[in-house]
Amino acid sequence: MHVTTMSFAVEPWTQQTVIVRVGKALDFRNAADFKAACQDQVRAGVRNFVLDFSETGILDSTGLGSIFSLYRQVSPMEGQVVFAAVSRPVQVVVQLTRTYKVFRQFPTVEAAREALR
């Protein structure tokens, strides 16, 4: 099954884990859509999110804020948010905010989902 909410494709992996294709940009224009898409998943029982940044050229502070909200929501339920295939622009933001201390990073989506199995 393949559900697309605006620009975000969400692919189930296990009952608890999904892969979110972040796409070209996560910023003030679509952060609310991202939040809504993740909310639906959390309500459906999903706890772990693999964010695929392979195509992402823009991640601004509003976009990052929406990821933080997700993290704050799932972490008390033992959930995880991990980053996969982090592109250079995303890496810059992650470095600046020191959020690599919170979000585990994996070179590929495959590696991330194996780790969350």
């Binding site: 933080f68 993290y71 704050r72 905010t97 020191r98 959020t99 201390k101 919170v102």
Partner: peptide, 12 residues
């Protein structure tokens, strides 16, 4: 020197 952004982890 830099640490984690505020509001993310209570034990930062």
């Amino acid at each position: 020197h830099s640490d984690l952004i505020l509001g993310l982890d209570r034990n930062a």
